[in-house]
Amino acid sequence: MEPIAQHEAREALEAIEHARRGVAAEVGLPRWYWWLLAAGWVVLGVVGDLSAAWFATVATVAYGAVHATVASRVLSGRRRTGGVQVSAETASRRLPVVVIGMLVALVALTIGTALVLDADGTEHASIFAGIFVAAVVGFGGPEILGVLRRWARA
């Protein structure tokens, strides 16, 4: 004899899926990560504009190294908040790829903005481009990542 009816089993499985999606929605990167990234973007913009080329290169490499260290701990997206650690099975393995793709697009946006501002005759074009993209990252990073995750189904 079956312990429950078919419709009851279906409702239970729907409740399970709803609970799983609720936890999966917690996947993401902590807020401080986005603000750290934004701060680095501004610093690199200033350094690139005001300092010697060799120093800008060293600063960029240092920024990349620091980011790689921080990102290696948070890129899995399993600990966006301190309230839950999403299991590896629930979190998509594609999330780091999506984040890196987003960073590459933001670098392209920074370069494009700086070129447009420079062509327009703006002084300190790279600083303004850095500030612009930093604002995009700081204020909209989680939302942009959310949209990209849906597109990539990650």
Binding site: I16, G22, A24, V86
Partner: peptide
């Protein structure tokens, strides 16, 4: 089900 989708909560 919530705990099953997480390492801990």
């Amino acid at each position: 089900a919530t705990l099953a989708a997480a390492d801990w909560a």
